[in-house]
Write a protein that binds this DNA or RNA. Structure first.
Lengths: 244, 244
DNA sequence: CGAGCCCTTGAAACTCGTCAATGATCGTGG
DNA sequence: CCACGATCATTGACGAGTTTCAAGGGCTCG
């Protein structure tokens, strides 16, 4: 199976063998990072672009009052911070959640990729889909109540993990309840309560970091989930679809 | 004074006369659009990229329950939907709020801009700052209470309008209270109440679509506003700074 | 075995939403 | 020019959703 990055980008746009070769050249020298470790910290002058190849990472930020908001989950194949290419300072932090393997890509390598029209478009796709996900999170937190929000996040993770071949009807979810609470903007106590609602409704089970979605249709119905914002292409619906 | 687009992009990266010429060539044939008119609707197959030159527009989406979330304000110089370049379907809608002048840019013109390295980087900057704003909105809605959220939005609009020369310590705000409520994820009734709190605290006045920020320092303090996410460059702090 | 962390539960307080009614503003047509 | 309806802003009362505080339980790891 191809790596998560190529697999994801090919969901958006067809890549030539040469394009793939160039992508694969970039992801040499992955390094292992323990869980709960910052890859970049707010205020840093960024150096290289980080790319998650294995594991779970997140973007987050603390408010002045010391509350944390998680703004994105970074799954295998996701670029953490294209900002590096053009912006002078990190406006948020990035941290691993589970142990990860990460590739550090120097700014110049990214600029080289952007020279090639097809790869440039592929990176635009990835960035625009990231923005679409962020918009949906805003809708989620702004307009839905806690139970729906949680269900919505779980639906999204299922579909996104399927794209990179890491889920069928269940997946490994190495988050704490506090992480999820900081994702959907509720207290950890309340998160615990709505989580139990989902279990009581027999929509999910979750133990030992493994989440099982017992009825994806009902969970999507429950949360008002519409997958169009993920812009899933050829491979999305079927975890085993071939992409070339 | 240069147009809002060039002015904004020059805040990120220095443009050659030739770059500016190419940008100016693109924004010929602006058209006038009445207030409260969709420029693009969720589900559409997008055609051209829209660029706001004058007026106030927004991104929004309705949930399955019929609640609206405004996900961005589009001010002069802002691209509405780079999605067009690569994505096949609008995952949200775009509408004017006040009467606007808008430029429609065909997909191919954008692709031509992306060929030029400097302009490509400038567009990446604009897209990455848009994403940064979106992240801050998520923090805002997820972690702050209603009064702070409202104050935060008003601070952001002040700074963003200054970038394009449309604000000093006050600006025209053609929004209804319902629009603001749908922005920060509260009911219109509650928005009205926290708005009155800001007035009572003597932080703002707002009538006849004109907002006056009476004490920006206290308003920023009140809302926990930190402008770093706007990545304002050379011209940001001073509305009259020269950029070349 | 104890320390620490996370999850769970209950009770009280608070923020915010809903419902309903009133008032203000504005454009339109008589 | 005024009356009318429509839209938006305002206010009060009540209820729902959520937070906070506090305490206890379960698990892992040294």
């Amino acid at each position: 199976m191809e790596n998560a990055l190529v697999r994801k980008l090919e969901g958006y746009i067809s890549l030539s063998p040469d394009d793939k070769r160039q992508l694969n050249a970039i992801i040499r020298n992955p390094r292992h990072v323990p869980a709960h470790t910052d890859l970049a910290t707010e205020g840093d002058k960024p150096t290289s672009v980080h790319l998650v190849m294995e594991g779970f990472a997140c973007r987050y930020k603390f408010t002045a009052e010391g509350n944390r908001q998680i703004m994105a989950y970074l799954l295998p194949g996701d670029f953490c911070d294209m900002h590096v290419v053009v912006l002078k300072q990190m406006d948020h932090s990035i941290a691993t959640i589970s142990p990860c393997t990460v590739v550090d890509i120097p700014r110049d390598h990214i600029l080289a990729l952007l020279q090639k029209p097809t790869l440039s478009l592929a990176l635009w796709c990835a960035a625009l889909v990231d923005a679409a996900v962020l918009r949906e999170w805003l809708v989620n937190v702004g307009q839905r109540r806690a139970g729906q929000r949680l269900a919505h996040v779980l639906c999204e993770l299922l579909l996104r993990l399927r794209i990179v071949g890491l889920a069928d009807n269940s997946y490994d979810l190495p988050l704490s309840q506090k992480d999820l609470a900081d994702t959907i903007g509720v207290s950890n106590v309340h998160l615990n309560r709505v989580l139990q609602d989902l279990r009581r409704e027999d929509l999910i089970t979750w133990k030992a970091e493994h989440l099982v979605i017992k009825d994806i249709d009902r969970l999507m119905e429950y949360s008002g989930f519409n997958p169009n914002y993920l812009h899933i292409g050829r491979q999305g619906a079927n975890p085993d679809a071939r992409t070339d």
